[in-house]
Amino acid sequence: MAVPLGAFIAVSAVLFSIGIAGVLVRRNAVVILMCVELMLNAANLALVAFSRRGGFPDERGSVFVVFVFVVAASEVAVGLAIVLSAYRNRPTVDVDEIHAMKG
């Protein structure tokens, strides 16, 4: 008995849901960034798993994972920069309190 493809997809779906839940319910901006990273990771897992579908590996799925890595690195750098500059204007990282469109 080998692990079927569906099991990987299911884990990926559960991880993605956890990420969405974290983004929707947590107040701390840094934790929200972490949850976005979890969602990207879930997408990576699904991409790699599907690129292995049907017994003949096709690396084009993995290439997209490499691009997701690039996007994730840019996202976390810019995201943290935004959190830090927002914190500099108002001393809070609570997303419910950061609602002004201008500082």
């Binding site: 080998a2 692990v3 079927p4 493809l5 569906g6 099991a7 990987f8 997809i9 299911a10 990926s12 779906a13 559960v14 993605f16 849901s17 956890i18 969405i20 839940a21 929707l24 699904a46 798993a49 292995r52 579908r53 049907g54 017994g55 003949f56 590996p57």
Partner: peptide
């Protein structure tokens, strides 16, 4: 919103029966 979504997608995902360890 999230709980039905996650469970639904996971169930759809589980329907793939191919070997993934190629």
């Amino acid at each position: 919103v999230v709980a039905p979504l996650g469970i639904g997608v996971a169930l759809v995902g589980l329907s793939f029966r191919d070997r993934a360890t190629a």
